[in-house]
Amino acid sequence: MKKSNSLTVPLRIAVISLVVCGLLFPGVVTGIAQLAMPVQANGSLISFHNTTIGSSLIAQDFNYSGFFQPRNDSASGLDPDITVQNATVQAARIHNVTGIPMAYLEGIIKENTKYTLFFFGSTYVNVLDLNLILAQHFPLIYNRYIV
C-alpha cells in the first residue's frame, strides 16, 4: 500500500484547508447573505427621515440631556440597551429638561420593555428606540438636536 508522503501531504492539505475554510467558506456565506439577507448582512442599518443613521444593534452616543443616554461602561462598550430602572431614572431628568410629561415617558418605557429571558428575567429598553420615538413625536423639542 502506498503511504501518504509525510513531507508534502501536510503542506498540500494545509493549503487546501486554507482555501476551503479560510476563503471559499466565508466567500460563499457572504455571497448568500448579501443576496438573501442584505439588511442583516450589512449590519441592520436603520433610517430616520430617509437618512441612514447607523446600526440598530449598537449604541449611539447621545449628549443632549433631553435624550435617553446609553451606558458607557459595559463589556462591549456598544451596549444599545439600558435597564428599565435606569431608563426611569433618566425619564425624570428628561422630564425636567424638556417638560415631556412623566406619564408619557413612563408609557413609552413600558411599551418598549423587553425581557432578558424571553418572558422572564430582568427588564430593559433599547435607548435608540426610545430616542427615535421622542424625536418623532416631539419635533419641536428635538429638531434642533438631530440630523
Binding site: 447607523g54 452616543d61 449628549n63 435608540l128
Partner: peptide, 9 residues
C-alpha cells in the same frame, strides 16, 4: 461611518 441621530454624532 454613519452620522447618528443626534446632530454631530
Amino acid at each position: 461611518v454613519f452620522k447618528t441621530l443626534e446632530l454631530g454624532g
